[in-house]
């Protein structure tokens, strides 16, 4: 295996959780809701997914548990931010703090447990092709699911009526309400989808990426996913590109550390966060003038009683 091939393979696995979590949050934000609890939902997905997989011995049930945990967490957020029209930023922060704590409780008895990482796809002949084989046909199922998710979300948002309605709720909830659409119900579904994706991304971390549980293992990936949504200007294809860019930087700094580059390892570890800041600045500056964010983003909607 060449070095380039090895790097490419690790970039794909590092980017996949970012793609999954970010595409979920993209749908949430296109519906006009900001859920800053991605990190909390993701780590709950990682903890519950791993716990369920160890207890049942089934990776599939682990994945389901991870998704379920993410959805359950998102329902708490929905109750506050949609049901009670509470401040979305504070509600999301609460969800992250709560999730980081609860995941520690759930995972406490599974620290040190090990299991096999999810097997990678192995298609006869195709996977054995030089270079293209392992990269395109030799990934774990999550990688294909993540790309499928991006394609489906793109198709849903731009090619279906339901997607148009969802975007209408995000751009101007008063008008959408006046047209007779159930703004809160549509936003609830979007928030649940975001929760499920964050949970799935978490399950990927603890079941395939590093097949064990350690507290705080999401290490800010949920926040980077939020940044990727802004970076992508709320567009699915650009999101895919952005997630791979960030995954690539994570891996490059790891390889640089491994090769003993004479730079403090902490500086290299800080790179993904610094690049996130620079990317936010560049993308926000270029757009000043016209704002790509959904019009009603972060504004609570309540029917006047």
């Amino acid at each position: 295996m060449t070095l380039l091939e090895a790097i490419l393979l690790t970039v794909i696995t590092a980017s996949t959780p970012l793609v999954i979590a970010a595409i979920g949050e993209l749908v949430v934000e296109r519906a006009g809701v900001v859920n800053l609890g991605v990190e909390g939902m993701m780590i709950m997905g990682a903890a519950c997914g791993f716990a369920a997989a160890i207890m049942t011995g089934s990776t599939f049930i682990g994945v389901l548990a991870g998704v379920g945990a993410g959805v359950a967490m998102s329902l708490i957020f929905a109750l506050l931010a949609l049901g009670l029209a509470a401040n979305q930023i504070a509600s999301g922060l609460a969800l992250t703090i709560f999730g980081l704590g609860l995941s520690g409780l759930v995972g406490a008895s599974f620290i040190g447990a090990k299991r096999e990482a999810m097997p990678k796809l192995d298609v006869p002949v195709l996977t054995d092709l030089p270079f293209v084989g392992p990269v395109v046909f030799g990934q774990d199922p999550f990688v294909y699911i993540s790309v499928l998710l991006v394609v489906s979300v793109w198709w849903f948002l731009t090619r279906t009526r339901a997607g148009l309605v969802l975007r209408a709720c995000g751009e101007n909830h008063t008008s959408a309400h006046a047209l007779g659409y159930r703004v809160l119900r549509i936003r609830l579904f979007a928030v649940m989808f975001g929760g499920g994706c964050a949970g799935l991304a978490g399950a990927y971390l603890s079941l395939a990426y590093t097949p064990f549980w350690s507290p705080g293992m999401t290490a800010g990936r949920g926040w980077i996913a939020l940044a990727i949504v802004v970076f992508a200007s709320w567009l699915p294809w650009r999101l895919l590109m952005g997630a791979y860019l960030f995954g690539g930087i994570t891996i490059l700094q790891l390889h640089a550390q491994g090769m003993g580059v004479r730079i403090p390892s902490q500086l290299l570890s800080a790179l993904p966060y610094l690049v996130t800041i620079v990317a936010l600045v560049v993308i926000s500056r270029r757009r000043s003038g016209w704002n790509a964010a959904p019009g009603a983003l972060g504004k609570p909607f309540s029917r006047d009683y």
């Binding site: 509470a86 509600s91 609460a94 980081l100 704590g101 609860l102 520690g104 409780l105």
Partner: peptide, 18 residues
């Protein structure tokens, strides 16, 4: 585990907002 403290803190913020 110390995580119980965080769970308390998260719940508290939920209830304040609610």
């Amino acid at each position: 585990p110390l995580d119980v403290t965080r769970v308390f803190q998260g719940m508290l913020l939920f209830y304040i907002l609610a």
